[in-house]
Design a protein around this nucleic acid. Structure first.
Lengths: 202, 202
DNA sequence: CGTACTGTTGAGATCCGTCAAGCACCGTGG
DNA sequence: CCACGGTGCTTGACGGATCTCAACAGTACG
Protein backbone atom coordinates (compact mmCIF):
# COMPACT_ATOMS: atom_id res chain seq x y z
CA UNK A 1 0.00 0.00 0.00
CA UNK A 2 0.88 3.65 0.03
CA UNK A 3 3.14 4.95 2.78
CA UNK A 4 4.03 8.33 4.16
CA UNK A 5 6.68 10.17 2.22
CA UNK A 6 6.13 8.46 -1.09
CA UNK A 7 5.25 10.69 -4.01
CA UNK A 8 3.63 10.58 -7.42
CA UNK A 9 0.87 8.25 -6.40
CA UNK A 10 -2.17 7.11 -8.20
CA UNK A 11 -5.62 7.34 -6.70
CA UNK A 12 -8.07 4.47 -6.30
CA UNK A 13 -11.75 3.84 -6.14
CA UNK A 14 -12.59 1.23 -3.56
CA UNK A 15 -15.06 -1.34 -4.81
CA UNK A 16 -14.90 -3.81 -1.93
CA UNK A 17 -13.42 -4.07 1.57
CA UNK A 18 -12.42 -1.55 4.22
CA UNK A 19 -9.32 0.64 4.33
CA UNK A 20 -8.11 3.13 6.88
CA UNK A 21 -5.87 6.10 6.21
CA UNK A 22 -3.65 7.14 9.08
CA UNK A 23 -0.63 9.13 10.02
CA UNK A 24 2.04 7.65 12.22
CA UNK A 25 4.21 9.66 14.59
CA UNK A 26 7.81 9.05 15.47
CA UNK A 27 6.86 7.88 18.96
CA UNK A 28 4.92 5.02 17.41
CA UNK A 29 1.41 6.26 18.13
CA UNK A 30 -0.84 6.69 15.16
CA UNK A 31 -3.91 8.70 14.34
CA UNK A 32 -6.44 7.22 11.96
CA UNK A 33 -7.80 10.03 9.85
CA UNK A 34 -10.59 8.31 8.02
CA UNK A 35 -11.98 5.01 6.85
CA UNK A 36 -12.86 4.19 3.29
CA UNK A 37 -15.71 1.84 2.56
CA UNK A 38 -16.92 0.61 -0.82
CA UNK A 39 -17.67 3.48 -3.16
CA UNK A 40 -15.17 5.83 -1.61
CA UNK A 41 -12.20 7.51 -3.23
CA UNK A 42 -8.79 6.60 -1.91
CA UNK A 43 -5.72 8.81 -2.03
CA UNK A 44 -7.26 11.74 -3.82
CA UNK A 45 -5.03 14.09 -1.92
CA UNK A 46 -1.84 12.43 -3.07
CA UNK A 47 -2.75 13.18 -6.66
CA UNK A 48 -1.95 16.83 -6.35
CA UNK A 49 0.31 17.19 -3.36
CA UNK A 50 3.83 16.14 -4.02
CA UNK A 51 4.21 13.82 -1.10
CA UNK A 52 1.63 11.54 0.32
CA UNK A 53 1.28 12.71 3.88
CA UNK A 54 -0.27 9.58 5.25
CA UNK A 55 -0.46 5.83 4.88
CA UNK A 56 -3.19 3.35 4.07
CA UNK A 57 -3.88 0.02 5.62
CA UNK A 58 -6.44 -2.51 4.48
CA UNK A 59 -8.69 -3.73 7.30
CA UNK A 60 -9.93 -6.67 5.31
CA UNK A 61 -9.16 -7.88 1.79
CA UNK A 62 -9.98 -5.19 -0.71
CA UNK A 63 -10.75 -4.61 -4.35
CA UNK A 64 -9.96 -1.28 -5.93
CA UNK A 65 -9.69 0.32 -9.35
CA UNK A 66 -6.58 2.35 -10.01
CA UNK A 67 -6.72 5.83 -11.48
CA UNK A 68 -3.43 7.27 -12.65
CA UNK A 69 -2.64 10.85 -11.78
CA UNK A 70 -1.79 11.75 -15.36
CA UNK A 71 -5.00 10.32 -16.72
CA UNK A 72 -7.00 12.15 -14.11
CA UNK A 73 -5.49 15.52 -14.92
CA UNK A 74 -6.04 14.92 -18.63
CA UNK A 75 -9.62 14.01 -17.99
CA UNK A 76 -10.10 17.34 -16.28
CA UNK A 77 -9.30 19.07 -19.53
CA UNK A 78 -11.72 16.95 -21.51
CA UNK A 79 -14.68 16.87 -19.15
CA UNK A 80 -14.83 19.77 -16.74
CA UNK A 81 -17.83 18.20 -15.07
CA UNK A 82 -15.54 15.49 -13.87
CA UNK A 83 -13.36 18.11 -12.23
CA UNK A 84 -16.42 19.41 -10.44
CA UNK A 85 -17.35 15.94 -9.27
CA UNK A 86 -13.83 15.26 -8.01
CA UNK A 87 -13.76 18.55 -6.19
CA UNK A 88 -17.06 17.64 -4.62
CA UNK A 89 -15.61 14.36 -3.42
CA UNK A 90 -12.57 16.15 -2.03
CA UNK A 91 -14.82 18.65 -0.27
CA UNK A 92 -16.90 15.92 1.29
CA UNK A 93 -13.75 14.15 2.45
CA UNK A 94 -12.58 17.31 4.08
CA UNK A 95 -15.95 17.91 5.70
CA UNK A 96 -15.70 14.50 7.32
CA UNK A 97 -12.21 15.21 8.58
CA UNK A 98 -13.44 18.51 9.97
CA UNK A 99 -16.27 16.82 11.80
CA UNK A 100 -13.77 14.31 13.12
CA UNK A 101 -11.60 17.18 14.30
CA UNK A 102 -14.51 18.77 16.15
CA UNK A 103 -15.26 15.44 17.76
CA UNK A 104 -11.76 14.93 19.10
CA UNK A 105 -11.36 18.54 20.11
CA UNK A 106 -14.65 19.21 21.81
CA UNK A 107 -16.56 16.03 22.62
CA UNK A 108 -15.97 13.65 25.49
CA UNK A 109 -15.17 10.02 24.86
CA UNK A 110 -18.78 8.77 24.97
CA UNK A 111 -20.10 11.31 22.50
CA UNK A 112 -17.08 10.78 20.27
CA UNK A 113 -17.69 7.07 20.08
CA UNK A 114 -21.41 7.51 19.49
CA UNK A 115 -20.81 10.06 16.77
CA UNK A 116 -18.26 7.90 15.02
CA UNK A 117 -20.49 4.83 14.95
CA UNK A 118 -23.41 6.89 13.68
CA UNK A 119 -21.35 8.42 10.89
CA UNK A 120 -20.07 5.05 9.85
CA UNK A 121 -23.58 3.64 9.89
CA UNK A 122 -24.84 6.51 7.74
CA UNK A 123 -22.12 6.07 5.17
CA UNK A 124 -22.63 2.33 4.99
CA UNK A 125 -26.39 2.69 4.69
CA UNK A 126 -25.74 4.79 1.60
CA UNK A 127 -24.21 1.79 -0.14
CA UNK A 128 -26.69 -0.69 1.22
CA UNK A 129 -24.43 -2.19 3.87
CA UNK A 130 -26.50 -1.40 6.93
CA UNK A 131 -29.36 0.61 8.33
CA UNK A 132 -30.70 2.12 11.52
CA UNK A 133 -30.53 -1.19 13.29
CA UNK A 134 -26.80 -1.68 12.78
CA UNK A 135 -24.07 -2.88 10.44
CA UNK A 136 -21.23 -5.37 10.14
CA UNK A 137 -17.95 -3.87 11.26
CA UNK A 138 -14.53 -5.51 10.95
CA UNK A 139 -12.75 -2.94 13.11
CA UNK A 140 -10.97 -3.85 16.34
CA UNK A 141 -11.07 -1.76 19.49
CA UNK A 142 -7.53 -0.70 18.64
CA UNK A 143 -8.79 0.81 15.42
CA UNK A 144 -11.38 2.73 17.38
CA UNK A 145 -8.75 3.92 19.84
CA UNK A 146 -6.46 5.23 17.10
CA UNK A 147 -9.41 6.87 15.42
CA UNK A 148 -10.85 8.62 18.43
CA UNK A 149 -7.59 9.62 20.07
CA UNK A 150 -8.20 7.35 23.06
CA UNK A 151 -6.36 4.41 24.58
CA UNK A 152 -7.61 0.94 23.76
CA UNK A 153 -8.39 0.40 27.42
CA UNK A 154 -10.63 3.40 27.57
CA UNK A 155 -12.36 2.44 24.34
CA UNK A 156 -13.31 -0.79 26.01
CA UNK A 157 -14.75 1.02 29.00
CA UNK A 158 -16.69 3.43 26.83
CA UNK A 159 -18.16 0.60 24.79
CA UNK A 160 -19.21 -1.17 27.94
CA UNK A 161 -20.91 1.92 29.25
CA UNK A 162 -22.79 2.56 26.00
CA UNK A 163 -23.86 -1.07 25.97
CA UNK A 164 -25.01 -1.03 29.61
CA UNK A 165 -26.97 2.14 28.92
CA UNK A 166 -28.83 0.33 26.16
CA UNK A 167 -27.56 2.60 23.39
CA UNK A 168 -25.32 0.54 21.13
CA UNK A 169 -23.61 -2.86 21.14
CA UNK A 170 -20.22 -3.41 19.51
CA UNK A 171 -19.48 -7.11 19.54
CA UNK A 172 -18.25 -9.94 17.34
CA UNK A 173 -17.77 -7.80 14.26
CA UNK A 174 -21.21 -6.29 14.41
CA UNK A 175 -22.59 -2.95 15.58
CA UNK A 176 -26.16 -2.97 16.82
CA UNK A 177 -27.97 0.31 17.41
CA UNK A 178 -30.10 -0.53 20.44
CA UNK A 179 -31.44 3.00 20.76
CA UNK A 180 -30.76 4.99 17.62
CA UNK A 181 -32.55 8.11 18.81
CA UNK A 182 -30.78 8.11 22.13
CA UNK A 183 -27.46 7.74 20.41
CA UNK A 184 -28.16 10.62 18.05
CA UNK A 185 -29.05 12.76 21.03
CA UNK A 186 -25.93 11.83 22.98
CA UNK A 187 -23.67 12.54 20.01
CA UNK A 188 -25.68 15.50 18.74
CA UNK A 189 -25.33 13.84 15.38
CA UNK A 190 -26.42 15.87 12.37
CA UNK A 191 -25.57 14.12 9.09
CA UNK A 192 -25.86 17.30 7.01
CA UNK A 193 -22.11 17.46 6.53
CA UNK A 194 -22.17 14.16 4.69
CA UNK A 195 -24.11 15.86 1.87
CA UNK A 196 -25.45 12.55 0.77
CA UNK A 197 -27.16 13.71 -2.37
CA UNK A 198 -24.13 13.62 -4.60
CA UNK A 199 -22.24 16.26 -6.54
CA UNK A 200 -24.12 19.20 -7.90
CA UNK A 201 -23.61 18.70 -11.62
CA UNK A 202 -24.65 22.13 -12.62
CA UNK B 1 -19.90 36.70 7.47
CA UNK B 2 -20.85 33.19 6.53
CA UNK B 3 -22.63 31.06 9.12
CA UNK B 4 -23.36 27.40 9.58
CA UNK B 5 -26.37 26.14 7.70
CA UNK B 6 -26.37 28.78 5.00
CA UNK B 7 -26.08 27.51 1.45
CA UNK B 8 -25.12 28.68 -2.02
CA UNK B 9 -22.12 30.62 -0.85
CA UNK B 10 -19.44 32.34 -2.75
CA UNK B 11 -15.79 31.76 -2.03
CA UNK B 12 -13.23 34.45 -1.26
CA UNK B 13 -9.57 35.09 -1.60
CA UNK B 14 -8.19 36.85 1.43
CA UNK B 15 -5.90 39.75 0.58
CA UNK B 16 -5.46 41.25 4.03
CA UNK B 17 -6.28 40.42 7.64
CA UNK B 18 -6.88 37.19 9.56
CA UNK B 19 -9.98 34.99 9.59
CA UNK B 20 -10.77 31.83 11.47
CA UNK B 21 -13.19 29.14 10.38
CA UNK B 22 -14.89 27.25 13.17
CA UNK B 23 -17.75 25.00 14.02
CA UNK B 24 -19.95 25.69 17.00
CA UNK B 25 -21.71 23.01 19.01
CA UNK B 26 -25.05 23.23 20.66
CA UNK B 27 -23.47 23.38 24.11
CA UNK B 28 -21.76 26.61 23.14
CA UNK B 29 -18.23 25.32 22.81
CA UNK B 30 -16.56 25.84 19.52
CA UNK B 31 -13.74 24.24 17.62
CA UNK B 32 -11.64 26.40 15.36
CA UNK B 33 -10.77 24.36 12.30
CA UNK B 34 -8.31 26.61 10.57
CA UNK B 35 -7.05 30.13 10.21
CA UNK B 36 -6.79 32.00 6.95
CA UNK B 37 -4.05 34.53 6.43
CA UNK B 38 -3.41 36.73 3.39
CA UNK B 39 -3.19 34.70 0.21
CA UNK B 40 -5.46 31.92 1.45
CA UNK B 41 -8.72 30.74 -0.02
CA UNK B 42 -11.81 31.14 2.10
CA UNK B 43 -14.90 28.99 1.90
CA UNK B 44 -13.80 26.78 -0.93
CA UNK B 45 -15.70 23.90 0.55
CA UNK B 46 -19.00 25.71 0.54
CA UNK B 47 -18.78 26.10 -3.21
CA UNK B 48 -19.65 22.51 -3.86
CA UNK B 49 -21.32 21.21 -0.75
CA UNK B 50 -24.85 22.33 -0.45
CA UNK B 51 -24.65 23.69 3.05
CA UNK B 52 -21.78 25.52 4.59
CA UNK B 53 -20.86 23.37 7.52
CA UNK B 54 -18.98 25.97 9.44
CA UNK B 55 -18.75 29.67 10.16
CA UNK B 56 -16.14 32.35 9.65
CA UNK B 57 -15.07 35.10 11.95
CA UNK B 58 -12.67 37.92 11.20
CA UNK B 59 -9.92 38.29 13.79
CA UNK B 60 -8.97 41.73 12.55
CA UNK B 61 -10.31 43.91 9.75
CA UNK B 62 -10.04 42.10 6.47
CA UNK B 63 -9.96 42.63 2.74
CA UNK B 64 -11.13 39.89 0.43
CA UNK B 65 -12.05 39.35 -3.19
CA UNK B 66 -15.31 37.54 -3.85
CA UNK B 67 -15.54 34.65 -6.27
CA UNK B 68 -19.03 33.55 -7.21
CA UNK B 69 -19.76 29.85 -7.30
CA UNK B 70 -21.24 30.03 -10.78
CA UNK B 71 -18.27 31.90 -12.19
CA UNK B 72 -15.90 29.43 -10.63
CA UNK B 73 -17.62 26.42 -12.14
CA UNK B 74 -17.72 28.11 -15.53
CA UNK B 75 -14.05 28.89 -15.31
CA UNK B 76 -13.38 25.21 -14.77
CA UNK B 77 -14.76 24.52 -18.22
CA UNK B 78 -12.68 27.22 -19.85
CA UNK B 79 -9.36 26.69 -18.12
CA UNK B 80 -8.86 23.19 -16.78
CA UNK B 81 -5.58 24.27 -15.28
CA UNK B 82 -7.54 26.44 -12.92
CA UNK B 83 -9.47 23.39 -11.79
CA UNK B 84 -6.17 21.70 -11.04
CA UNK B 85 -4.96 24.68 -9.07
CA UNK B 86 -8.18 24.87 -7.08
CA UNK B 87 -8.04 21.19 -6.33
CA UNK B 88 -4.48 21.65 -5.18
CA UNK B 89 -5.60 24.39 -2.82
CA UNK B 90 -8.37 22.18 -1.50
CA UNK B 91 -5.92 19.33 -1.01
CA UNK B 92 -3.52 21.53 0.89
CA UNK B 93 -6.37 22.78 3.08
CA UNK B 94 -7.32 19.24 3.88
CA UNK B 95 -3.72 18.27 4.61
CA UNK B 96 -3.59 21.06 7.17
CA UNK B 97 -6.81 19.90 8.78
CA UNK B 98 -5.44 16.38 8.89
CA UNK B 99 -2.28 17.54 10.60
CA UNK B 100 -4.44 19.47 13.03
CA UNK B 101 -6.42 16.31 13.69
CA UNK B 102 -3.27 14.34 14.43
CA UNK B 103 -2.17 17.07 16.79
CA UNK B 104 -5.36 17.06 18.81
CA UNK B 105 -5.66 13.31 18.79
CA UNK B 106 -2.14 12.25 19.58
CA UNK B 107 -0.04 15.09 20.93
CA UNK B 108 -0.04 16.50 24.44
CA UNK B 109 -0.82 20.14 25.05
CA UNK B 110 2.78 21.37 24.86
CA UNK B 111 3.56 19.70 21.57
CA UNK B 112 0.20 20.79 20.19
CA UNK B 113 0.89 24.41 20.97
CA UNK B 114 4.43 24.24 19.61
CA UNK B 115 3.26 22.60 16.43
CA UNK B 116 0.52 25.10 15.86
CA UNK B 117 2.79 28.10 16.31
CA UNK B 118 5.37 26.58 13.98
CA UNK B 119 2.80 25.91 11.28
CA UNK B 120 1.45 29.40 11.53
CA UNK B 121 4.97 30.80 11.34
CA UNK B 122 5.72 28.74 8.26
CA UNK B 123 2.62 29.86 6.46
CA UNK B 124 3.19 33.50 7.31
CA UNK B 125 6.82 33.32 6.24
CA UNK B 126 5.56 32.21 2.85
CA UNK B 127 3.83 35.55 2.36
CA UNK B 128 6.61 37.59 3.91
CA UNK B 129 4.91 38.18 7.26
CA UNK B 130 7.47 36.56 9.52
CA UNK B 131 10.49 34.30 9.72
CA UNK B 132 12.30 31.92 12.01
CA UNK B 133 12.58 34.57 14.69
CA UNK B 134 8.84 35.09 15.02
CA UNK B 135 5.77 36.88 13.68
CA UNK B 136 3.02 39.30 14.63
CA UNK B 137 -0.06 37.46 15.83
CA UNK B 138 -3.44 39.06 16.64
CA UNK B 139 -4.88 35.93 18.25
CA UNK B 140 -6.03 35.82 21.85
CA UNK B 141 -5.42 32.90 24.17
CA UNK B 142 -9.09 32.04 23.72
CA UNK B 143 -8.49 31.57 20.02
CA UNK B 144 -5.64 29.22 20.84
CA UNK B 145 -7.83 27.31 23.27
CA UNK B 146 -10.62 26.80 20.74
CA UNK B 147 -8.08 25.79 18.14
CA UNK B 148 -6.17 23.27 20.19
CA UNK B 149 -9.10 21.75 22.04
CA UNK B 150 -7.90 23.07 25.40
CA UNK B 151 -9.32 25.39 28.00
CA UNK B 152 -8.15 28.97 28.03
CA UNK B 153 -6.71 28.43 31.47
CA UNK B 154 -4.58 25.57 30.33
CA UNK B 155 -3.41 27.47 27.28
CA UNK B 156 -2.06 30.08 29.62
CA UNK B 157 -0.18 27.47 31.63
CA UNK B 158 1.26 25.86 28.52
CA UNK B 159 2.42 29.21 27.18
CA UNK B 160 4.08 30.00 30.45
CA UNK B 161 5.89 26.69 30.47
CA UNK B 162 7.12 27.08 26.91
CA UNK B 163 8.31 30.58 27.75
CA UNK B 164 10.10 29.48 30.93
CA UNK B 165 11.80 26.69 29.00
CA UNK B 166 13.19 29.29 26.61
CA UNK B 167 11.35 27.92 23.58
CA UNK B 168 8.83 30.50 22.47
CA UNK B 169 7.26 33.70 23.79
CA UNK B 170 3.66 34.65 23.03
CA UNK B 171 3.06 38.16 24.26
CA UNK B 172 1.56 41.50 23.25
CA UNK B 173 0.46 40.34 19.84
CA UNK B 174 3.81 38.93 18.90
CA UNK B 175 5.24 35.41 18.78
CA UNK B 176 8.99 35.13 19.31
CA UNK B 177 10.76 31.87 18.57
CA UNK B 178 13.42 31.83 21.27
CA UNK B 179 14.68 28.38 20.30
CA UNK B 180 13.37 27.39 16.90
CA UNK B 181 15.23 24.10 16.77
CA UNK B 182 14.09 23.07 20.21
CA UNK B 183 10.53 23.88 19.32
CA UNK B 184 10.70 21.84 16.12
CA UNK B 185 12.03 18.93 18.12
CA UNK B 186 9.35 19.18 20.80
CA UNK B 187 6.57 19.34 18.21
CA UNK B 188 8.22 16.93 15.79
CA UNK B 189 7.31 19.49 13.20
CA UNK B 190 7.82 18.49 9.58
CA UNK B 191 6.45 21.10 7.18
CA UNK B 192 6.27 18.71 4.22
CA UNK B 193 2.48 18.61 4.40
CA UNK B 194 2.30 22.30 3.65
CA UNK B 195 3.65 21.55 0.15
CA UNK B 196 4.87 25.09 -0.12
CA UNK B 197 6.02 24.98 -3.71
CA UNK B 198 2.63 25.65 -5.23
CA UNK B 199 0.36 23.65 -7.51
CA UNK B 200 1.95 21.39 -10.06
CA UNK B 201 0.86 23.04 -13.28
CA UNK B 202 2.65 20.45 -15.30
C1' DC C 1 0.00 -26.94 23.09
C1' DG C 2 2.32 -22.66 22.67
C1' DT C 3 1.90 -18.01 20.62
C1' DA C 4 -0.30 -14.00 19.00
C1' DC C 5 -4.16 -11.15 18.85
C1' DT C 6 -8.23 -9.22 20.86
C1' DG C 7 -11.01 -8.14 24.56
C1' DT C 8 -11.73 -7.22 29.69
C1' DT C 9 -11.03 -5.43 34.23
C1' DG C 10 -8.66 -3.16 38.29
C1' DA C 11 -5.49 0.25 40.64
C1' DG C 12 -2.96 4.19 40.68
C1' DA C 13 -1.06 8.27 38.36
C1' DT C 14 -1.42 12.34 35.45
C1' DC C 15 -3.11 15.66 32.45
C1' DC C 16 -6.28 18.85 31.95
C1' DG C 17 -10.86 21.13 33.02
C1' DT C 18 -13.68 23.82 36.19
C1' DC C 19 -14.27 27.15 39.55
C1' DA C 20 -12.68 31.10 41.64
C1' DA C 21 -10.23 35.20 42.34
C1' DG C 22 -7.51 38.95 41.07
C1' DC C 23 -4.68 42.08 37.97
C1' DA C 24 -3.82 45.05 33.88
C1' DC C 25 -5.42 47.54 30.20
C1' DC C 26 -8.63 50.39 27.65
C1' DG C 27 -12.54 52.90 26.16
C1' DT C 28 -16.80 55.16 27.82
C1' DG C 29 -19.31 58.29 30.19
C1' DG C 30 -20.11 61.18 34.10
C1' DC D 1 -10.11 63.58 36.26
C1' DC D 2 -12.07 59.45 37.85
C1' DA D 3 -15.45 55.55 38.21
C1' DC D 4 -16.88 51.79 35.65
C1' DG D 5 -17.48 47.75 32.77
C1' DG D 6 -15.46 44.78 29.36
C1' DT D 7 -11.84 42.06 27.65
C1' DG D 8 -7.80 39.54 28.06
C1' DC D 9 -4.25 37.53 31.03
C1' DT D 10 -2.61 35.11 35.26
C1' DT D 11 -2.56 32.05 39.12
C1' DG D 12 -4.18 28.63 42.76
C1' DA D 13 -7.01 24.73 44.43
C1' DC D 14 -9.69 20.85 43.48
C1' DG D 15 -11.86 17.17 40.89
C1' DG D 16 -12.55 14.25 37.12
C1' DA D 17 -11.70 12.15 32.68
C1' DT D 18 -8.43 9.54 30.72
C1' DC D 19 -3.83 7.13 30.56
C1' DT D 20 -0.51 3.68 31.97
C1' DC D 21 0.68 -0.45 33.94
C1' DA D 22 -0.58 -4.94 34.93
C1' DA D 23 -2.91 -9.17 34.88
C1' DC D 24 -5.94 -12.47 32.85
C1' DA D 25 -9.54 -14.82 29.66
C1' DG D 26 -11.07 -16.35 25.04
C1' DT D 27 -10.04 -17.51 20.40
C1' DA D 28 -7.60 -18.62 16.22
C1' DC D 29 -3.76 -20.74 14.32
C1' DG D 30 0.48 -23.16 13.50
Amino acid sequence: MVHQGQSAQAAYILSGGWVCSYKRQTDGTRQIVDFQVPGDFLGLRSVLLRTSDHSFEPIVDIEAAEVMTRDLLEAFALTPRLATAILWAASRDEAMVVEHLVGIGRRDADARMAHFLLELGSRLALVGMGGKDGFDCPLTQYHLADTLGLSAVHVNRVLRQLRENGLVTFRDGHVTFDDYGGLVKLAEFDPAYLDQTGPLLK
